[in-house]
Nucleic acid binder design. Sequence first.
RNA 1: GGCCCCAUGGUCAAGCGGUUAAGACACCACCCUUUCACGGUGGUAUCAUGGGUUCGAAUCCCGUUGGGGUCACCA
Length: 477
Amino acid sequence: MNKVRTRFAPSPTGYLHIGGLRTALYGFLYSKKNHGDFILRIEDTDTARYVDGSVQIIYDTMRDSKIMYDEGPDVGGDFGPYVQSERKDIYLKYAKKLVELGGAYYCFCTPERIASLKDGEGNVRYDKHCLRLTKEEIEEKIKSGVPYVIRQNIPTEGAGSYHDLVYGDISVDYKDIEDGILIKSDGMPTYNFANVIDDHLMGITHVIRGTEYLSSTPKYNLMYDAFGWERPTYIHLPPIMKDAQHKLSKRNGDASYEDFVKKGYIKEAIVNYIALLGWSPKSNVEKMSLSELIENFSLDGISKSPSIFDETKMKWLSGEYIKEMSQEEFNALSLDFLKESKVYGKFDTEKLLTLVKGRVQILSEIPEKLDFLCDFGVFDTALFINQKQKTDIELAKSVLPKIKETLSDLSAFDNSTLFNSLVDLSNQLGIKKQALLWIARIALTGKEVTCGGATEIAELLGKDETMKRIDFSLSLL
RNA sequence: GGCCCCAUGGUCAAGCGGUUAAGACACCACCCUUUCACGGUGGUAUCAUGGGUUCGAAUCCCGUUGGGGUCACCA
């Protein structure tokens, strides 16, 4: 059995979108699961669509998400070059060979003639016009500089069948396939040709790609057969949708990996979530590290139908990763987000982050969770009324001075000291600690809902500010 | 439109001829709790449709409907 070799072959036309990243991930997982190699190949044969800088984005995104390749343009390997534009001569050589083998032919038709072939629906179907040309005629035209392309010669009868590991047996009649262009007039190959040549030359055993190639695969097989090459195993992947009828796409401005990272999603959670889109593990455990994904990955868990991207669930997973990470790790990741909050610099950074960890799912939620600390001012004293804790304004009025007195006597001002002293106070007063703490928290924040309890907030505010706020709240009553 | 493919709750999905049709997210309720969050328990909700085949169909076959893909000198 040959060593498994899979590849991810994006074209550098912009950002790496979520669907592309998932294709890469599955290729990576499958190869690693089978102790094989994962290769990155850049498919830049369309010079017109090339976007500057996007190759770097591909490298960066894959490294950042830990979907690392064993061979590729920037890491080398024995099967390079790994950039198609650098392989132009190779394709031309094989195209000529395919012409000799009868699998392709030169075509000199003008765009005008092609356009005249349009049917009622506006679809063009090439009529094999140039297939009739004699060897002499072809040489003559080439010599005199007539522009040409090389087309694949698809049989007029029969059907191409193959077995896809996800979709099963696929069969397409050759009469439904056009004689597509293999080599463009600029000498560059099209995807339809380059992918076959490269996959063979690079020893790719398993071709993992989107379903958009499901029905064009028979024509690739025709080439493998003509060259006498072994066909790879095919694994086509269902698309990731934005909603029931639209694919998630960069074109629509849908979020990319980078965008999600910027929004403060934990990277591992993004990878974990996209692994789950279109694939389900045997067990019911969904939160998995990359190595666990490798261990659990199997092709029979891949579904055939499109799946809709659910950001809410990814958010949940991100929150799970936050809960499990250490406070130190969280702090390191969160600092840049905390800086966006108006509380930054006004309170102890570590205390702020301790308060917020476990209460956010994505890091960009940090500012909104903490801003309340700075928003203290006149508030509705009705907040002191709480049915369940049996608190009201009168109680607040009588208890608040005692809270102030208790706290002002404290030498330490940490959460547990604060908490213990207030609980003691509530016992002395003969009221429930919940009631007392409710009043304290409202007095300190003027907010019905806060992230953190009364004593946590008091610690954060510090003694002076705590006293000030109690005085202020008292003045409102 | 031709061809290829797909169809289980709102979403991700398990299921491979006999199940009370898993599980997760979301939602709701209750419990816990120093409000919120966390955590715990429970709940609402799914086999697109019509025909077959079979003792028996979410599972197999056909049609219908719906959806996706593809029909470029794009990948």
